[in-house]
């Protein structure tokens, strides 16, 4: 039972990453990120129950409240104030992007077999999904133009790292995880403020316009 929930929610995270690749409306992309964070929290709770690791409850609660609610709410407010709702045509069109992401998933799964837990069991799936999500996040990062989408890609990479951490070690020591969550929150705030300033000056959050500096 626990294993099924684990695999299901981890796979759900991968699905949200794929949906983000196929998505142009910024609000939907932010909601997808929120859903992904909730799924990460479910993975955390499941492992906490199955392996009796009470400190994972704290991590899961933190994930759900910060990354599932607070950060999406903040990003939506930023988008709302800026008044730009859609991603422009990415550097690569959606079908081609999805094909590449498929390839990345295969790579992620292949790498995950090298880990000691990787040969058998659920951990293999969790790590494989984590690595694939990480690669898709990186791919989003390099192909998208809007500042908000780049932030979402960064956050997806970060979620993927947490998923890998859960799959491979059942979580880092609590103090360190608290510090990391706090830092991520701070980073999103700083990014949001910077986006505001960029939009104020350029009247656009198209990152491809930031191209004066060369050489």
């Amino acid at each position: 039972m626990a294993n099924n929930i684990l695999v299901l929610s981890a796979a759900g995270m991968l699905v949200t990453a794929y949906l983000m690749v196929g998505q142009k409306a910024l609000f939907t992309a932010i909601r997808l990120y929120g859903a992904q964070s909730w799924l990460l929290a479910v993975v955390g709770v499941t492992i906490a129950l199955a392996d009796h690791r009470p400190h994972l409850f704290v991590t899961a609660a933190l994930t759900a409240s910060l990354k599932g609610l607070l950060i999406p709410w903040f990003l939506m407010r930023v988008v709302d104030r800026i008044g730009i709702r859609r991603e422009v045509e990415p550097f690569l069109n959606v079908p081609a992007s999805l094909l590449i992401c498929l390839g990345l998933t295969v790579v992620g799964y292949r790498v995950s077999t090298g880990f000691p837990e990787g040969a058998t069991g659920v951990a293999h799936h969790v790590i494989g999904v984590g690595l694939s999500t990480l690669l898709i996040g990186l791919f989003l990062m390099v192909t998208r133009k809007k500042a908000i989408t780049q932030i979402l890609a960064l956050l997806t990479v970060e979620n993927a790292v947490f998923l890998i951490a859960l799959g491979i070690t059942s979580g880092m020591p609590l103090v360190v995880e608290l510090g990391i969550s706090f830092d991520v929150l701070l980073a999103v705030l700083v990014l949001g403020i910077l986006v505001h300033r960029i939009v104020d000056r350029f009247e656009s959050m198209d990152v491809s316009r930031l191209s004066q500096l060369k050489g």
């Binding site: 990186l138 990062m141 500042a147 780049q150 960064l154 990479v157 970060e158 790292v161 990391i180 980073a187 700083v190 990014l191 910077l194 300033r197 960029i198 000056r201 350029f202 990152v207 930031l210 191209s211 004066q212 500096l213």
Partner: peptide
């Protein structure tokens, strides 16, 4: 304009690097 561009690149690339480091 240029300082915002530099700050954006710095933050995005730096955060990506830190994602790897994490």
């Amino acid at each position: 304009d240029t300082s915002l561009e530099a700050a954006w690149k710095f933050l995005v690339l730096g955060s990506l690097g830190l994602g790897f480091a994490l």
